[in-house]
């Protein structure tokens, strides 16, 4: 008889929690100067890294971080069953072109800035389901490629409002395995697309916060857990305003996360970086998780964390046509020791 791994409405509890056996992070110079600068594996000296275009530079970051994660997992690319990756650029050129270079069976993902968590969630299902032994999941973003696609040319003289966020230049990758040593993914909660009518593309935090809150509340309901069951609850890239809104909405539903909740967009930049509300982009949650939080788990600072990757599902076309910005959020529970013991 098939075992039921579904828990409540939107959550999956893994029987054999997949283990993150290797992870890597690469960031640009601005992120390197931020408070987490020392935690990342590589800090690039500039945002072009010897390439002709920023798009090529982003691909180089993504490729290098994938190779580094596989190396840290003490594997070779031949051991990877499937690679799952995504980025923010039209038609996923960073991930698709990187997969072309790596020659690994590939599934492209688009979850906007939630992509890393979408990859961890799907990858864990494949591993726990027995469909794969090793999954490589990765995500990248680049300030200049995102600005020119979604907003203005970088040298354009515009004043950014206080709600604006700064796209993180960075790439993070992780290798999931059916066994081994490392932090393990025990639960995932797949989010719904939520839109509460925010249409200001300079205020992504407010657009995504309802999705983050909805997924968090659903996660607590599905699992019967309380916020205090986690050492840390973090969202992907809501930055300071989205974080405050999420906290209020989750509180309205009866869950108080004020004591142990933060956001990767808040962690990665301090006020000296002058990013206004904080960081954003696929790379934001990917590098903070891979570079910083997983290390904290391994070191035993945290035992169990709940991460929620958040994405704003807009396009330049939908923005110009006056559509509001739908948000998505996927939650992943990571524990610092392997459950089940097998």
């Amino acid at each position: 008889m098939a075992v039921n791994k579904k828990m409540g409405k939107q959550t999956i509890a893994f029987h054999n929690p997949p283990v993150i056996i290797g992870a890597s992070s690469i960031v640009g110079p601005k992120e390197g100067q931020g408070p987490l600068g020392k935690e990342f594996d590589t800090v690039l000296p500039d945002t072009l890294v010897g390439e002709q275009t920023w798009e090529k530079a982003e691909r180089k970051m993504l490729k290098t971080s994938c190779e580094m994660a596989v190396q840290k997992a003490k594997l070779t690319l031949q051991d990877i069953d499937f690679m799952m990756a995504g980025d923010l650029l039209n038609q996923l050129i960073s991930a698709n072109f990187t997969a072309r270079d790596l020659g690994v069976p590939f599934i492209g993902l688009y979850g906007a800035c939630s992509t890393m968590f979408e990859g961890l969630a799907l990858g864990s299902m494949l591993v726990d389901g027995g469909y794969a032994n090793h999954i490589l999941t990765a995500a990248s973003s680049h300030y200049d490629t995102a600005e020119r696609q979604f907003r203005f040319p970088t040298e354009m003289g515009v004043q950014r409002p206080p709600t604006a966020q700064w796209t993180v230049t960075g790439a993070g990758a992780a290798v999931l395995a059916s066994g081994g040593k490392g932090p393990a993914i025990t639960h995932v909660t797949i989010g719904k697309v939520i839109d509460l009518g925010i249409s200001d593309a300079n205020d992504m935090g407010s657009a995504m916060a309802p999705a983050a809150a909805d997924t968090l509340i659903q996660h607590f309901k599905d699992t019967g857990r309380k916020p205090s069951d986690y050492d840390l609850i973090f969202t992907g890239d809501l930055a300071s305003i989205g974080r405050a809104l999420t906290e209020q909405m989750v509180k309205q539903a009866g869950f108080d996360i004020s004591k142990n909740y933060t956001d990767c967009g808040v962690l990665i930049f301090d006020s000296a970086r002058d990013t206004h509300a904080g960081g954003s982009g696929c790379g934001c949650s990917a590098v903070v998780l891979a570079g910083y939080l997983l290390k904290q788990l391994t070191a035993g600072v945290y035992k169990r964390i709940l991460g929620v990757g958040t994405g704003a599902l807009l396009s330049t076309t939908s923005s110009l046509q006056g559509e509001s910005i739908p948000g998505i959020a996927h939650a992943v529970v990571i524990e610092g020791y392997k459950l089940g013991g097998n």
Partner: peptide, 22 residues
């Protein structure tokens, strides 16, 4: 109603642009 309430919450939460400085 939920959208209206949320937009009011956003207005209360987000910082005002520094008008005088700008």
């Amino acid at each position: 109603m939920q959208k209206i309430q949320y937009q009011q919450m956003v207005m209360k939460t987000k910082p005002k642009p520094p008008l005088l400085r700008n």
